[in-house]
Nucleic acid binder design. Structure first.
Lengths: 106, 106
DNA sequence: TTTATACTTCAATATTGATTGAAGTATTTT
DNA sequence: AAAATACTTCAATCAATATTGAAGTATAAA
């Protein structure tokens, strides 16, 4: 997957409003599935589904509680978020835009 | 529409791979519909449809050719792109992430 | 003023993937 | 060992929207 496809995929994943909302909750810190359910009102399996998509692009990570491993904590993968932030910034950089004359002229 | 919804909408629009590809072509400079069709192979009305969506969030703009007004030129709205770039950068800022203990603990 | 061009809009269909409900897994508690 | 908890995975349905084909609009050329 080249950089173009990577950015496209990230936008696709965050482009879903439900996922965007869940991600934004994780931006306020570590949460478990049940807490996200509480805050959003979404079904618990739906949250699980979207967390998986976020995890697949390494935007978030999960960790089981040391004492009670039934609890799984989800948090933003800060290192990769920084990377994505940079790639996205580069992608949207206005300097990339060339002063081009369209080929189709009368 | 608050900033959160705005970013969500931008991600939604760019999250579509076809639109993302069209947008990326415009990042290489001004194009008319027919040129995008040539480069992508997409149907001309499909391109028109996606350009409209990009235009609705002011990511791109259009201008008719002065001599032959049948030609419509599409280009990235650099000012608004810069704004979006900044908002997105803020949104993804790792400093926003709080060091939070999940409420659900054993 | 008829025809051609460049593009848009509309309406219908197709596709993707979001959502739901049920079943399954892992772990802990009793 | 059985029941409860926290969550995941599967399979089916549903909804949003992408795509297509046809008709429509605006402008220019013949």
């Amino acid at each position: 997957m080249d950089n173009f496809d990577f950015i496209s995929r990230v936008l696709q994943v965050l482009g879903n409003p439900t996922r965007f909302r869940i991600f934004n909750i994780l931006m306020t810190g570590t949460h478990c599935n049940c807490e996200i359910a509480e805050k959003t009102g979404y079904a618990i399996n739906l949250i699980s589904h979207h967390l998986k998509a976020l995890q697949e692009i390494d935007l978030i990570q999960s960790e089981r509680n040391k004492i009670d491993a039934r609890w799984i904590y989800y948090s933003v993968n800060t290192q990769n978020l920084g990377y994505i932030q940079d790639r996205l910034h580069d992608f949207l950089n206005t300097n990339r835009i060339e002063n081009r004359d369209p080929a189709c002229v009368p």
